[in-house]
């Protein structure tokens, strides 16, 4: 993960960053370092999945307890926006994978273009979420828990549904932003020093993995929240 930065720089100053990169000195070789970073990152992804699993459990429990409230709440969600966002994320997952591929092929230009598309998708997702879902709902009084003030609740427990909705999508949206930040960081480094190339692209790869995770979690959230009534 971050050990990339502990590297001692080697090689001629004029060369691209990925050629100059030297692995951290407590590793035996670059391959070991790459594997270690990957393993560490996968573990980190596991913790992320577990974090969300708590939310999924809460969802399942309350769905069993108050099925009508969940149906009522779910009807307020617009499949259109959820669907568009799903497509946006799927596209971005594809482009981030492509940008890693480009790094492996040393195609610096398309690496950046793909990365830029991914980042734009991230913001598009966030924008749609905010502008067409959160803000209108919030202003109608459709809010979590005690803040709920919409007079037309379909069920007395509807606020609970909205708590779950805001909790799950809110934490997911936070992850979208974190993911975007990681990708921007990669982009900056790519522009600055051609940091990623065939022999060294650890950070890009991990940021990509993180982005896939964000995508996968949405793939679960979307049907649970928007499609099942």
């Amino acid at each position: 993960m971050s050990t990339i930065d502990t590297s001692t720089k080697a090689g001629a100053p004029g060369e691209p960053g990925w050629k100059r990169y030297k692995f951290a000195n407590h590793f035996r070789n670059a391959e070991d370092e790459f594997d270690a970073c990957k393993l560490g990152f996968w573990l980190f992804l596991a913790t992320e999945v577990l974090l969300f699993s708590g939310l999924f459990c809460a969802y399942a429990m309350f769905r069993m307890k108050y099925p009508e409230a969940f149906a009522a709440g779910s009807h307020h969600l617009d499949v259109k926006y959820g669907g568009i966002n799903t497509l946006v994320l799927l596209l971005s997952s594809f482009t981030v994978a492509m940008s890693i591929r480009c790094a492996q092929l040393n195609n610096q230009k398309w690496l950046r273009i793909n990365l830029i598309i991914t980042i734009l998708c991230a913001f598009l997702f966030f924008f749609i979420k905010l502008a067409f879902e959160y803000i209108p709902k919030w202003s109608q009084g459709i809010r979590p828990g005690i803040l709920y003030s919409n007079p037309f609740a379909g069920h007395p427990q509807e606020p609970t549904w909205w708590s779950v909705y805001y909790g799950a999508t809110g934490i997911h949206a936070l992850h979208v932003l974190i993911g975007a930040a990681l990708l921007i960081w990669c982009l900056v480094r790519s522009f600055r020093s051609n940091q990623y190339g065939p022999t060294h692209y650890t950070m890009l790869e991990n940021a990509g993995l993180y982005w896939h995770l964000v995508d996968v979690i949405w793939i679960f959230l979307f049907p649970l929240l928007y499609l099942i009534h």
Binding site: T47, E48, L50, L51, F52, S53, G54, L55, A58, F62, P144, G145, I146, L147, P159, T160, S163, V164, Y166, G167, I171
Partner: peptide, 22 residues
């Protein structure tokens, strides 16, 4: 195990501050 307490405590804080009713 720790991520689960993470989300639990987070929800507890939400509960405490916003009374989300979970």
């Amino acid at each position: 195990a720790t991520p689960v307490i993470g989300i639990t405590l987070l929800l507890l804080i939400f509960e405490r501050v916003f009374h989300v009713g979970i």
